[in-house]
Amino acid sequence: SKDTIRINGIDIDVKDLHEEWKRLVEEALKRGDEELAIELLERALKE
């Protein structure tokens, strides 16, 4: 798994994120759902 995830052309540092969150965000991006990916990231970062 990578340490960054690219959303809207912005590389976001996710190395401190739990693997499960990372996977969910990557799944959302694979489906092209950037809005969901951002929402998941925000939730993950609050934890």
Rank of each mutant, 00 (worst) to 15 (best):
E26I: 15
D13Q: 07
N8M: 08
E35C: 11
R31E: 08
E39Y: 15
V25M: 11
E26M: 15
E47G: 10
N8K: 09
S1Q: 11
K30C: 03
L17H: 01
A37T: 02
T4C: 07
R31T: 09
S1H: 10
G32S: 02
D33F: 08
S1R: 08
D13W: 12
R43L: 10
G32D: 04
G32H: 05
V25Q: 00
I5L: 13
L29N: 01
E34V: 14
N8P: 02
G32V: 01
L40A: 01
V14L: 09
E47W: 06
E19W: 15
L29S: 01
E35T: 14
E35P: 12
R43T: 06
K2D: 10
L40H: 02
R6K: 11
R43C: 07
V14C: 03
R43D: 03
E42W: 12
D13N: 14
R23A: 07
E19L: 07
D16E: 10
V25S: 00
E26S: 12
T4I: 14
E26P: 00
R43S: 06
D33G: 03
E42Q: 13
H18E: 09
I38H: 08
K2N: 13
D16K: 10
R6V: 10
T4W: 07
H18L: 11
E19Y: 15
L45Q: 10
E34D: 11
S1K: 10
E47C: 14
D13H: 09
E39L: 15
L29F: 05
R31I: 09
D16L: 11
I12T: 04
D16T: 10
K30V: 09
W21C: 04
L40P: 00
L40T: 04
N8I: 03
E47K: 05
E20T: 15
E35I: 13
L45P: 03
E19P: 15
A37K: 00
R23C: 03
E19M: 10
I10L: 11
D13T: 07
R6P: 03
A37Q: 00
K2T: 13
A44S: 04
R6N: 11
E27D: 11
E26W: 15
D13R: 05
E39D: 07
A44Y: 13
L24A: 11
G32P: 01
I7D: 01
K46D: 07
R6M: 10
D16V: 07
K15D: 05
D16F: 13
K22T: 06
K30Y: 14
D33C: 07
D33T: 02
V14G: 03
I5R: 02
I10Y: 11
L41I: 13
H18A: 15
E47L: 11
E39M: 15
E42D: 10
E19K: 10
L36R: 08
G32N: 06
G9N: 06
E35R: 15
L17G: 01
R23T: 08
K15N: 09
E35G: 13
I38C: 12
R6Q: 09
L41N: 00
E27S: 07
L45N: 10
I5E: 01
L41D: 00
D3V: 10
A28P: 00
L24C: 07
E39F: 14
H18C: 11
K22S: 05
E42T: 12
D16Y: 14
T4E: 04
L24D: 03
E42K: 14
T4G: 03
V14P: 03
R43V: 06
N8W: 03
T4A: 05
L24R: 12
L45E: 05
L17F: 06
V25D: 00
A37S: 01
K2H: 12
V25I: 15
E47M: 11
A37R: 00
D33W: 06
D13F: 09
K15V: 05
R43P: 00
L24K: 11
A44I: 04
K46Y: 09
L36E: 07
D11W: 08
I7Q: 02
H18N: 13
A44C: 03
E47V: 09
A44D: 00
L41E: 00
D11Y: 08
E26T: 14
L24Y: 03
E27I: 07
E20H: 15
W21G: 03
S1L: 14
E27V: 04
D3Q: 07
R31W: 11
D13G: 05
A37Y: 02
R43N: 06
I10D: 04
E39I: 14
G9H: 04
L17V: 09
D16C: 13
E47D: 11
E20C: 06
K30N: 11
L45H: 09
R6L: 07
L40W: 05
K2F: 14
L41H: 01
K2C: 06
I7G: 01
E34I: 12
A37P: 00
A28F: 05
K46A: 13
R31Q: 11
E42L: 15
G32I: 01
E34N: 13
E26Q: 14
I12K: 04
E19D: 10
H18G: 13
K22G: 04
K22E: 01
K46N: 10
L17N: 01
G32R: 04
